[in-house]
Amino acid sequence: MQSISRHDILRRLRQTGLAEQVQASEVLQAVQLFLRSEFSQASQDIEPLYVRGQIIVIRCHQSAVAQRINERADELCAYVYQATGVTLAGVRFQL
């Protein structure tokens, strides 16, 4: 039996016009996973919100945590690329 690849699913979604939303959701999930594993103690204060123009916008209430995330932004982008194939250019914070 022929299996359906992730690429096929994305192609179908692109045809139906949902690909961007699905991809954004995948990115948010990957960012969430990264943040939960690397910043577990502060996970209540961090929430990935949306992706716009290759920038992931994260709600973070603690400037110290925001700085730590900033320092590891490259690592976060690499993780997201590995998990979803989406290239992120950076991180931006929101109140």
Partner: peptide, 8 residues
Amino acid sequence: ATEFPLLP
């Protein structure tokens, strides 16, 4: 300004 956090 691109570095500045967004105000909701």
